[in-house]
């Protein structure tokens, strides 16, 4: 479901939408194409833009501003105090460590899965390709329940992950499975066979070919997929609600900490943690934007 995400090769752009556009204010009549593809706003589209911006502000920007406002209300000292409070800090550290471990595993396993799905051919491969998307398609609370049905209190294999850090790790691994796979897959499909042939004919072993020829072109995709997965793991909530026992210092993660703050009527505390998560989200999309633009330039 992420095929349209950043790492896929950018679609062909209409010619002429390049340099020169910015410095030249449109002098032509309204509705006409200024510099190949970008129209000037007409009264109708201007009105549409206004309506869209109002709705976007009401739905997204103002509420997010309210979070920042609430976090800033008590000043820097109280914001910092909340985050460095031992219990909150433990939750943040656990979240970051788990997300990092999951990201490392995904960077390796996701690449391998993408490789097998693209290069190998065997019966049932198409089914596996659909299976990759299931963790995305499932509602998060259902994802938690799905894992609990196998690894929960009624586990047929006798393993109970409820209220353990391994459980959190497993849940994050489940929900972030598609990110790296789906960003690496299209790049692998597009790879030119010629360079591999050339490497092989020059005497490179298959592993050397992979390491020196294929891997470098996959790195931006792996990076993009990993950062998406990391951001998701940091902010994950639904699948952890049933699995993480929410024990302070042990299995409490950032998003559940926000819920606990809210239930305890501590809005400032909730907002402080939320601002951190928001920051991670913003950094991620900016990083992805940069990666995809770099890839687009190189292509």
């Amino acid at each position: 479901m992420t095929q349209t995400l950043v790492a896929s090769p950018p679609p062909a752009r209409p010619a002429g939408r390049g340099p020169g556009r910015a410095g030249r204010p449109g002098r032509r009549g309204r509705g006409s194409a200024a510099n190949g593809g970008l129209f000037r706003l007409t009264p109708t589209s201007g009105l549409g833009l206004g309506v869209a911006l109002v709705w976007f502000s009401v739905l997204v920007m103002l509420p997010l501003a309210a979070v920042i406002g609430a976090a800033a209300e008590g000043g820097w000292a109280s914001f910092w105090g909340t985050l460095t409070d031992a219990q909150t800090f433990a939750a943040l550290r656990l979240t970051v460590v788990e997300a990092f471990l999951v990201t490392v595993v995904n960077a390796f396993v996701g690449t391998v899965v993408a490789w097998v799905l693209v290069r190998d051919h065997f019966w049932g491969k198409r089914v596996l390709d659909v299976v990759i998307d299931i963790p995305f398609a499932l509602p998060t609370i259902v994802a938690g329940l799905v894992l609990l049905s196998l690894w929960g209190p009624d586990s047929p294999v006798g393993v109970n992950i409820v209220n353990t850090r391994e459980g959190i790790f497993l849940a994050l691994l489940f929900v972030t499975l598609p990110f790296v796979v789906r960003t690496v897959q299209p790049v692998l499909i597009e790879l030119d066979a010629d360079v591999e042939e050339a490497a092989a004919s020059l005497g490179a072993s298959r592993f050397t070919t992979f390491r020196r020829v294929i891997l470098p072109s996959l790195v931006p995709a792996i990076a993009a997929g990993s950062s998406l997965g990391f951001a998701r793991a940091i902010s994950e909530f639904g699948s952890l609600v049933l699995i993480s026992g929410n024990t302070p210092y042990q299995t409490e993660v950032a998003s559940l900490k926000i819920l606990k703050f809210l239930e305890g009527d501590n809005q400032a505390g909730a907002a402080a943690v939320a601002v951190l998560l928001l920051l991670v989200a913003v950094v991620t999309i900016v990083a992805l934007d940069l990666i995809s633009r770099r890839v687009a330039r190189r292509g």
Binding site: S235, L262, Q267, V282
Partner: peptide
């Protein structure tokens, strides 16, 4: 900026979304 911002809601934690709406409305 708008084209980057419209992508933001997908990366924001659902809990933060809920909190944001509560703090605003």
């Amino acid at each position: 900026i708008l084209s980057v911002l419209v992508d933001l809601p997908m990366s924001v934690s659902p809990v933060v979304v809920g909190l944001a709406l509560v703090l605003a409305y």
